[in-house]
């Protein structure tokens, strides 16, 4: 059964802040959903392989031929912050 600490742990993994109220509410909702989901635990799945790709297709590999790039202006056009032709972010190690 998922508890509040589990919810906060996965929220951290998912880089999602939850307020206290959200964490409380989500814990209840997730527990209910997972209870329903856990019905798959009742099935006998011995020897059943997993399906990752439902339509059996061969991967059509891409020939190694260069295509056009975006202009730097286009690449940076939607960025929240830029500097020196790059995307500006808070330093990963600060704080």
């Amino acid at each position: 059964m998922i508890d509040r600490d589990d919810v906060l742990h996965v929220a951290r993994l998912a880089r999602l802040r939850l307020s206290d109220a959200e964490a409380d509410r989500m814990t209840g909702e997730l527990a209910k959903i997972l209870e329903h989901v856990e019905r798959i635990g009742e099935l006998d799945l011995d020897g059943v392989p997993p399906t990752a790709h439902v339509v059996a297709v061969e991967h059509e590999l891409r020939p190694d031929v260069p295509g056009p790039c975006l202009s730097r202006e286009a690449a940076l056009a939607q960025a929240p912050a830029t500097q020196d032709g790059g995307f500006l972010v808070p330093s990963p190690q600060a704080g």
């Binding site: 998922i2 589990d6 919810v7 996965v10 929220a11 993994l13 998912a14 880089r15 999602l16 802040r17 939850l18 307020s19 959200e22 989500m26 909702e29 997730l30 959903i33 997972l34 989901v37 972010v89 808070p90 330093s91 990963p92 600060a94 704080g95």
Partner: peptide, 30 residues
Amino acid sequence: EADDLLTMYTETRHDGFGDEVKRRILIGTY
């Protein structure tokens, strides 16, 4: 905006996503 990266990530995603999206991200991550 935040001074550190972790806070920038978590606040951006907290404010940007709605409840249902958050729920599914949490279920999926779990």
